[in-house]
């Protein structure tokens, strides 16, 4: 185990300083270029073993982490909850101990329980990266969203960003709120009050009850996925009404005083929280987010494994 400028683990953006977040974003810049090469591989993490431990189904995040690891030449193993010892009733602490016994360097964990990444990090010496824990945090998603905003606007400070939708159950929302606020953005949320935390004021964000008002205010909207389950559990009456009242549509965006940038962490429910012509339209940077995801994760892997930030540019060339 090595401890770099981020500490042992990346569990969330709430515990990080503004400088640490800037460091990750700055370190991601040189790594972007690797994915544009014909041969997308550098030897930076050669000899490191990483386990991707996914207790929840995930395509985008898992593949993104895996590409980041492979492009840095790490040896990786993917473990999904189904078909593993987990489905046979093994506890998280036993899973952790078994992984530790195999002398691995890093674990990337996605888990349905808030706090699961911290639980693991406190019990093993390997570096732990939180790839989403329950409704708590999803730090690399927050980082890639910020990198995408910075690419477009040149800076985060003073930017007006509204997070739209199911903030109550969203780990993406929490990581975005902490990260953006630390870098000096003005952050707002917009959604039905039944899908906002009752204590939302404590986050230091503006609350918009109407999406029209949010659009008037914002430089960028980060539109959260609305899970079908929320309707089944009675938080909202129907997806149709949700789209009518809170959906981000071209008509609504057209009334904005400026071009509002559109982000979405995916996977999208087209026609629910976001209309197709917005998702596919000129103000959407949804696919840029996906591209940036690989670079941000390479930066996190590099920094956590003890890589020195000033050498990131050199590291991509293969020199250590």
């Amino acid at each position: 185990m090595s401890v770099g400028p981020l500490g042992k683990d990346l569990l969330g953006l709430e515990p990080l300083s503004a400088d640490q977040i800037r460091l990750i974003l700055d370190t991601a810049e040189p790594f972007k270029e690797i994915s544009e090469r014909t041969i997308k591989k550098v030897p930076t993490l050669r000899g490191k073993t990483i386990v991707n431990l996914f207790f929840e189904a995930s395509t985008r995040t898992r593949v993104s982490f895996e590409f980041a690891q492979k492009r840095l030449s790490a040896d990786t193993v993917n473990v999904a909850a189904s078909g593993s010892s987990v489905s046979k009733g093994e506890t998280l602490v036993d899973t952790a101990r078994n992984l530790e016994a195999m002398r691995i360097d890093m674990v990337v964990i996605r888990h349905g329980a808030s706090g699961a990444a911290q639980f693991l990090a406190e019990r093993i010496e390997s570096n732990v990266i939180n790839a989403g824990d329950g409704t708590h945090e999803h730090p690399t998603q927050g980082l890639l969203d910020m990198l995408t905003l910075r690419d477009h606007f040149g800076k985060i400070e003073g930017l007006k960003v509204c997070i739209c939708g199911d903030v109550l159950h969203s780990r993406v929302a929490r990581s975005n709120i902490w990260g953006l606020k630390k870098l000096g953005a003005d952050v707002a949320v917009c959604g039905p009050r039944s899908l906002l935390p009752n204590a939302i004021d404590a986050f230091g964000v503006t609350v918009f009850d109407r999406i029209e008002d949010a659009i008037q205010w914002a430089d960028a909207l980060n539109v959260l996925r609305l899970q079908l389950e929320r309707m089944q559990r009675g938080y909202i009456p129907s997806l149709r009404e949700y789209n009518r009242v809170f959906g981000v549509s071209r008509e609504r965006l057209a009334r904005a005083p400026r071009d509002v940038l559109i982000l979405h962490p995916g996977p999208m429910n087209r026609g629910v929280e976001i209309d197709s012509d917005v998702a596919d339209g000129p103000q959407s940077v949804i696919l840029n987010q996906v591209t940036n995801g690989v670079a941000v994760r390479m930066a996190v892997l590099y920094l956590l494994s003890g890589g020195r930030p000033e050498l990131a540019e050199a590291a991509k060339g293969g020199q250590r």
Partner: peptide, 15 residues
């Protein structure tokens, strides 16, 4: 308890 800490930790609160 439902409150600031439950909202931050992403844990479901009991009001």
């Amino acid at each position: 308890n439902e409150g600031i800490i439950s909202a931050r930790l992403g844990l479901r609160g009991i009001p």
